[in-house]
Design a protein around this nucleic acid. Structure first.
Lengths: 207, 207
DNA sequence: CGAGAAGTTGAAGCGTGTCAAATGCAGTGG
DNA sequence: CCACTGCATTTGACACGCTTCAACTTCTCG
């Protein structure tokens, strides 16, 4: 999906990773969010007329497409769905705010460490992480576009983190031998992900 | 309102400016959003248990406080209110995304110019701007905390913009003699504010 | 009139970007 | 099976935007 287009359906990622991004006139690109399996890409397509950003797959993805009419029908049939969507929207906004902090205040190694923590924790919460490792299909260019750093500097920073034994990154797999240490390095506080499931009572009952 | 606290009411700004911010353990502070008159500070207090950020007044403010019960009651009585809130939430998220781009991709002068454009356009949309000027109570420290720049560099960057005749900034008043020129400098595209009021049909009917 | 906050300026240092080149690796076609 | 291609990763040297520190000035308000 491209910025400026209108879109009539919402997509939910079943498998694979995707991202939201914006491009400046002169070509600079900023990745704004990552979508992991289970994430909803964009239900606000039903609210705005025109996309103000683009969405792209990072790996091959399998998505569940939900049309406007199906969406309305589901909302009508399952009242709690609307609450679940509020919850989703709230958490997505909280993540976006944390990215703002990340880009504004943290230096390169904190910034990358923070992003790695977030991705690991989110995957873990979705049951997609091992004890200390997870799939990691992002290239260093992706990481750079997400953190506002040059590819070259991402490379050097990853090396630092590797040499400090904070991460292992090979074969599209991220290993975090000591998550507490990495979180400390990143000043990562998972509260913004609201993972304690305090919103469980808002979950949609789809049965 | 402080990060970590829980909060039982929502506030709407009637007069004055406020901001949302987060603080890192070591004291670094990032302003995440500005609230202008008419903006809702935070209705997601009704969704999450605990604030993951703080809110502070920038100028003296006058707010309308809405309790949980009033809120629920209003939602029940005015069905379109819920749609209006979706619209509000969508636009707020879009602004947050643009801030991510701003911090990640733009250099100091673009970044500040972009923020000034956004504030001016938002005030103008609310009928709070003159032809080419508006109230502007932010200090250079505020600007720095919002743009991720040091106060010193904000100062120098403002001087550049002033010397290029892109802005005038004195006595808490911002003057933009040539908004098109400033927007060009900032690569500012107002589409993310969705000001064409494409969502007008979602407005709450409060009569 | 005095004191604290906000704005201003210069000099020096450092974190990141840029440029350029080399290496490794996977897929493709001959 | 190997040469070829394109993409991702890696590394070094150098440049520059921004930060830091420190001092000074100008505002604001009691």
């Amino acid at each position: 999906m491209r910025e400026g287009e209108s879109c009539s359906s919402m997509n939910l990622i079943r498998e694979g990773w995707a991202c939201r991004y914006k491009t400046l006139e002169d070509g600079r690109r900023q990745i704004i969010a990552f979508f992991l399996p289970g994430d909803i890409c964009d239900y606000n397509v039903f609210v705005t007329r025109e996309m103000d950003h683009s969405i792209a797959a990072i790996t091959p993805v399998s998505v569940a497409e939900v049309s406007r009419s199906t969406f309305d029908q589901m909302l009508a049939n399952y009242p709690r769905l609307s609450q679940a969507l509020w919850w989703e929207s709230t958490v997505t906004s909280a993540i976006q705010r944390e990215w703002t902090v990340n880009l504004g205040q943290r230096d390169a190694s904190e910034r990358i460490a923070h992003l790695l923590c977030e991705i690991f924790v989110r995957l873990d919460a979705a049951g997609l992480a091992d004890e200390d490792s997870c799939e990691f299909p992002l290239t260093q260019t992706d990481l750079g576009e997400a953190t506002g750093l040059s590819t070259v500097h991402v490379n050097r920073t990853l090396r630092e983190l590797r040499e400090a034994n904070l991460i292992g990154l090979r074969d599209r797999t991220l290993r975090i031998p000591n998550i507490a240490a990495l979180q400390r390095q990143a000043m990562f506080n998972p509260n913004y992900l609201h993972l304690d499931r305090e919103g469980r009572h808002l979950d949609a009952n789809t049965h």
